[in-house]
Design a binder for these strands. Structure first.
Lengths: 115, 115
DNA sequence: TTAATATGCAACCCGGAGGTTGCCTAAATG
DNA sequence: CATTTAGGCAACCTCCGGGTTGCATATTAA
């Protein structure tokens, strides 16, 4: 087994549910959509245009922060949030493995039928 | 914009949170792990080896079914659950777009700095 | 210094998610 | 037919997620 493949299965074993759970909310997905465009935003800026309270947005940001999807830096009186690509990337690889397993299962089934 | 890219952004707009939420549970991820190996399983079989009740497992399966990750076929007195790769695949593409947006933002920043 | 702005913290509310138990029905098995 | 096995349905419980309001604090602006 190659090193690359081994690290993939290690990533498979690590608990993924929290990241998925953090992604499982439309408000948080729209926050990610804004932040992954590159520019950091303050809480007030992220609250603008939303029907939710600043505190609600803050809670969502903390959820994203708790799984590493965003991180915050404090500048003056405001805290700026910035996207971090690593967790999303690892999650994408995880889904890759699921699809890959399924495809391999289909291949085995196909070659079995052909025999 | 190519047709392919247009359909990608359409997939981006469709609500993704329910699928992520369905994936946001370790029990359901382990069910997926078993089912994406190719073979269909009955509820009793999926309950075996788990510390949870059959009804708890059933509820989790219904959650996965509600977002299309699995589907059930009835055979005799048992209902067999089988993995369906489409939602996972679309979710993977969604995460691709997020990563892609981030990478493009980095590229723009880099070329801006270089100017 | 005073006022406005940005945020943090805590209490509270409500609904739903995850889990269990109990009972009931349908199918396979003897 | 009697029994076992697979599953559906419903009630119930507990806890937490999402949201709000109210107030306190720190920084910036006038």
């Amino acid at each position: 087994m190659s090193r690359k493949h081994r690290s993939s299965t290690a990533a498979l074993r690590r608990p993924r549910a929290p990241v998925f759970a953090a992604l499982g909310d439309e408000v948080r997905l729209s926050l990610i959509a804004k932040l992954c465009a590159g520019q950091p935003y303050s809480i007030s800026q992220l609250t603008e245009g939303s029907r939710l309270t600043r505190q609600a947005i803050t809670k969502h940001l903390r959820v994203l922060e708790s799984v590493g999807i965003v991180h915050s830096v404090h500048r003056g009186r405001e805290s700026l949030f910035e996207f971090d690509p690593k967790p999303v990337e690892e999650t994408r690889k995880y889904l890759d493995l699921v699809s890959e397993q399924w495809d391999q299962a289909l291949s085995r089934l196909k070659s079995f039928v052909e025999d």
